[in-house]
Simulated scan of single mutants.
Amino acid sequence: MSMTISAATARIARQLPEAELSLDSALLASARLMESMLLARQADGVQVFTGQTALMRLAKAQRTLLESQNDMIRVHQELRGVGLEVKAITDDKDSCPPSGMLDAEPLRRSA
């Protein structure tokens, strides 16, 4: 099934923000889960470090989601370049994430 450039541009322009927001939604949901897990272990009779492994795994999942957001920003920037190249979009820099956002290296814990 073939599609015109304008149809593809419209579809991508609609789906890209949806994909970007889904990562925010996943981060928010995992943050709420983290809060609930921490509050749960403050209940009477629960030892201080109960669920620590699960919390560490959730924190790792959150880091992975943040790294996925960086990749999604790169996808957005690449698609912007392609859109300009095929003249499907105009040079509206305010509609895309700035490239400077990705300059900082992610924080890594040393072993």
Rank of each mutant, 00 (worst) to 15 (best):
G51C: 07
I89C: 00
A29T: 11
Q15T: 04
M37L: 12
H76A: 11
G45I: 01
A61I: 02
S6A: 15
R41M: 01
D103H: 09
E20G: 06
S99L: 11
V48F: 13
R108L: 14
F49G: 08
A59G: 06
Q52P: 00
R14I: 04
M34A: 13
A40H: 11
Q69S: 10
D92F: 05
M37Y: 01
S68I: 05
E35A: 13
L23T: 09
S68G: 07
D71S: 14
S110Y: 08
C96H: 12
H76L: 00
R14W: 09
V82I: 15
S22Q: 10
I5V: 11
A29L: 08
G45N: 06
L16M: 12
P106G: 06
T64P: 01
A19D: 04
E105D: 15
L28V: 13
A8W: 11
Q69T: 10
G100F: 09
A111Y: 08
H76Y: 02
E85H: 14
L23R: 03
Q42G: 02
L107R: 14
L107Q: 12
V48D: 14
S22M: 09
D103E: 15
I73P: 01
R32P: 01
D91G: 03
K60T: 14
L66V: 13
I89P: 00
T4A: 07
L28T: 14
L65Y: 04
V82G: 01
M37N: 00
G100I: 11
F49C: 09
G100E: 12
G81I: 06
Q47T: 09
I73F: 05
P17S: 03
L107M: 11
R74T: 14
L28W: 11
Q42Y: 00
A88N: 03
S25G: 15
M101P: 03
A29E: 08
F49D: 13
S22P: 00
M3S: 12
I73E: 05
P98W: 03
R74S: 09
L66N: 10
I89F: 01
A8N: 05
A40P: 01
R57E: 12
L66Q: 13
L55N: 04
A88W: 03
P17R: 02
S99K: 13
A13Y: 00
A40G: 08
I73L: 09
L102P: 04
E67G: 09
G45F: 01
D44L: 08
A61T: 10
A13R: 08
T50A: 13
I73M: 09
R11P: 02
L33F: 04
G51Q: 06
K87E: 12
A40I: 04
R74G: 05
A43C: 06
D24C: 06
L66C: 12
G83H: 01
P98E: 06
G83M: 00
E20F: 10
S36F: 07
R80P: 00
A104W: 01
L84I: 08
T50R: 07
I89R: 00
A10G: 11
C96W: 10
S30D: 11
C96E: 11
S68K: 10
S110M: 13
I73Y: 06
A88M: 03
G45P: 01
R41A: 01
G81A: 04
L16N: 02
L33C: 04
A40K: 12
A59D: 10
A43V: 02
L27Q: 11
A10W: 07
R41T: 02
